[in-house]
């Protein structure tokens, strides 16, 4: 039985495009077409507005929270071509860094797994992807750019978890890596764009290179989500598209990816998301339903539950 836990009135003046919860689930940030970002304290089922951030000159599309070990940091991206990092200092949220080097709307921002440091990837309608790396010692940012990542534009980004494919139990190498301050792990992320492709990028020395180009979708990719790792050697990515399909891409070695079409839906699919342990996939789209999908022991995906938003007044039933 599923029920409403909490309803938060965002107080925005226009539609919101993103609502993100921080690492521990204590704060909620929302971003809207009214160009503003709001941060709420939602501890213990309450709702208290902590900050109303104005700094963008256009609709704000997406937000991403950094790991709390870097402090309270939020990244936002907007139609105004800017990416802004906001930081809380002594209870005040202020602009911490502004990145202005995109030529068109920035559609997606995502912080990398915290083990890699404070790294942000930004995907833009100008077809490029920027990777901003903060040197936490000096507070300076280093910028790398992938030009022509997706023709017409990049819509979504998602990072590969840091403990892939074999590291969850190999504590020694992990510990060494973190105490030495150097990471042996190769950084990867996945992006989806208007060229109907899903691409996997990896860091190679001081450049980012395209490792794989996954072509099955027949229309714009709207969202991609790399599944969290819980110690299994395999890895998977979910992608959804305006072609109404959700595809699960599986790999055992990060070199060959096999697509499985999860389902063809009645309408465009806007969004895919994994539960923290990566065993349930949430899918939502133009059919106004969120369906939850789980893989059974035989590797078959089935829908386990559905939340349907219903137009009828005050209808709340299980």
């Amino acid at each position: 039985m599923v029920s409403v836990l909490q309803t938060i009135d965002s107080g925005h003046e226009d539609l919101i495009h993103g609502a993100e919860i921080d690492y521990y689930g204590l704060n909620l940030a929302t971003c809207s077409s009214d160009n503003s970002i709001k941060i709420f304290d939602i501890k213990n089922g309450g709702q208290r507005l902590k900050a109303d951030l104005k700094g963008h000159g256009g609709p704000v599309w997406q937000l991403s929270w950094a790991h709390p070990k870097f402090g309270n940091i939020l990244a936002s991206c907007s139609y105004d071509r800017k990416v802004i990092l906001w930081k809380e200092n002594n209870g005040e949220w202020t602009k911490y860094y502004e990145y202005n080097n995109h030529d068109s709307s920035v559609n997606s921002v995502a912080f990398a797994p915290s083990e890699y440091g404070l790294i942000l990837a930004c995907g833009s309608s100008d077809g490029t992807i920027s990777i901003l790396t903060c040197n936490t010692e000096t507070g300076m940012f280093d910028v790398k750019k992938i030009t022509n990542a997706h023709t017409i534009g990049c819509n979504a980004l998602s990072w590969c978890p840091s403990s892939l494919p074999d590291a969850a139990f190999d504590q020694r190498s992990k510990q060494n890596a973190s105490t030495n301050g150097t990471q042996t792990q190769i950084k990867r992320f996945v992006s989806g764009g208007c060229d109907n492709t899903v691409k996997i990028w990896k860091e190679d020395g001081d450049r980012w290179v395209e490792e794989h180009k996954l072509e099955v979708h027949s229309d714009w990719i709207r969202d991609v989500a790399w599944a969290p790792s819980i110690g299994l050697p395999s890895s998977r990515i979910a992608s959804c598209s305006q072609d109404r399909r959700v595809i699960i891409w599986n790999t055992d070695d990060l070199s060959t990816w096999t697509p499985t079409i999860l389902n063809t839906f009645d309408d465009v699919v806007w969004n895919v998301s994994w539960s923290l342990t990566g065993n349930i996939l949430g899918v939502s789209g133009g059919d106004n339903k969120i369906s939850l999908w789980k893989e059974n022991n035989d590797g078959v995906w089935s829908c386990i539950s559905e939340d349907a938003e219903n137009a009828k007044e005050h209808q709340r039933q299980m």
Partner: peptide, 15 residues
């Protein structure tokens, strides 16, 4: 649209 925000919770909003 809606998406997972924690392991158990899903967040929804008009879209």
């Amino acid at each position: 649209i809606g998406k997972f925000v924690t392991n158990e919770e899903i967040s929804l909003h008009g879209f």
